[in-house]
């Protein structure tokens, strides 16, 4: 059996492997959330956080572009009220909105035959529709990581795009290398999702993370 880490714990684990995240604050009350948002500057994103929270988007637990203090207060309270017992909610995460029109997905997974793999593809809301992803076996070489990024079908997304600069391929490759190290060093990690990985000013920033751990302490 496996279980998921909360978004905050998932991010803490991945940040220790040098995956870049947007700054964020875990607020335990609506008032604290509004205060943090005020300090960050609007607009912000507010999300429910807890060990059992999965499929946040589908359940409406991710609110983007919250524009002022009173909206932040209302939104945070709605999210806290929407929490179910199984969510084991610990609060709401408040972070500045990262702007960028390109979203990728990166992660790790364990294949029943080939063992640990690293995945990279087009992410965000287009993940399933475009179904554009590449997989390699971990551990990766830097060459493997580079080739992963450059071999997606929608290569045009890596070039200058809608007034935004080219994607920093080396920066994405580093994230893939980090994921490769993580899955090799931590046999209890069943899967990792970084989705979306937003390209902001050409650089990738992860704004969501989900880590799934094996309860027995070790996967295959």
């Amino acid at each position: 059996m496996s279980s998921t880490l909360s978004e905050a714990d998932s991010k803490a684990l991945l940040a220790s492997y040098l995956v870049p995240f947007s700054p964020e604050v875990l607020a335990i009350s609506a008032e604290a959330a509004a205060e943090s948002a005020q300090q960050m500057g609007f607009p912000v994103a507010i999300k429910l956080c807890g060990d059992g929270v999965a499929h946040k988007t589908e359940r409406g637990l991710v609110r983007l572009g919250v524009g002022n203090r009173s909206d932040a207060l209302t939104t945070a309270q709605e999210l806290l009220d929407a929490a179910r017992p199984e969510d084991e909610a610990t609060g709401v995460l408040v972070s500045p909105m990262i702007s960028g029109s390109r979203e990728f997905i990166a992660g790790v997974n364990r294949d029943p035959q080939f063992g640990p793999t690293v995945v990279f593809g087009v992410g965000g809301v287009m993940t399933e529709v475009l179904d554009d992803a590449v997989v390699r076996l971990a551990p990766l070489t830097t060459q493997d990581a580079y080739e992963m990024v450059t071999s997606i079908a929608n290569k045009g997304l890596l070039e200058e795009f809608r007034g935004e600069p080219k994607v920093d391929i080396a920066a994405i490759s580093e994230i893939l290398m980090s994921l490769s190290r993580l899955v090799v060093e931590r046999p209890d990690v069943v899967s990792v999702d970084l989705n979306p990985l937003i390209i902001s000013e050409g650089r990738p920033i992860a704004v969501d993370a989900l880590v799934e751990l094996d309860d027995q302490g070790a996967s295959r």
């Binding site: 999965a54 499929h55 294949d111 035959q113 997989v135 069943v190 799934e212």
Partner: peptide, 19 residues
């Protein structure tokens, strides 16, 4: 078909292709 998106993206075919 787990909680993870990468799980559904990492099809047998893509894993073999990558290998």
């Amino acid at each position: 078909a787990a909680a993870s998106h990468t799980g559904s993206l990492a099809t047998n075919d893509r894993v073999f292709d990558g290998a």
